[in-house]
Design a binder for these strands. Structure first.
Lengths: 79, 79
DNA sequence: GGAAAATGTCAAGCGTCCTTTCCATTTTAA
DNA sequence: TTAAAATGGAAAGGACGCTTGACATTTTCC
């Protein structure tokens, strides 16, 4: 039946969020609290269910002390 | 009466889009075409009417050969 | 000065981002 | 192995990102 909400085949954006979070040794809940978003948002990003807004991407990057490009990988297959 | 659609006082994101576009010597229309978005979208970004999605931010950065951080400046006053 | 080009901005519509609530499944640890 | 903690994910709703279409204003330049 294929649900796959939001993100489709040519979806161009990967991220290293789960890896970075585990390196920090924190839970989704703790990361969510640190970023002032919901736990579901973190889970959805980690599992590629949707892309973050640019503001959330900046918050995440700042939290981990990295650039957006070091965390989110843009692939332009689409078009 | 204050319309100010979308972006409010604590709006945290500035960008150098107009400056970079003018340095390239291209119009909003041409930039829009190059990025495959509408001219209104470019104008709205240049005038701070709203923030780009992270995908559009990546497209813009790639087009100008810069990082997202070199084009968009995040200020965390909010919260 | 007058025409064409460029820009500003509104409105309606649609899809995405993120929320809260809720429940199921997996992992952890005693 | 069992309870608690952590994670996965659905559903509905609100706000934002981007579209097309339209029109007004400003800029360019002959």
């Amino acid at each position: 039946m294929e649900r796959k909400l939001y993100i489709e085949e040519g979806s161009d954006l990967e991220n290293r969020l789960e890896q970075l979070r585990r390196e920090r040794g924190i839970t989704q809940d703790e990361l969510a609290a640190a970023l002032a978003v919901s736990r579901q948002t973190i889970g959805s990003l980690e599992n590629g269910r949707y892309n973050p807004s640019i503001l959330l991407a900046f918050k995440i990057a700042r939290y981990f002390g990295k650039t957006i490009e070091e965390i989110f990988v843009y692939e332009e297959d689409a078009e």
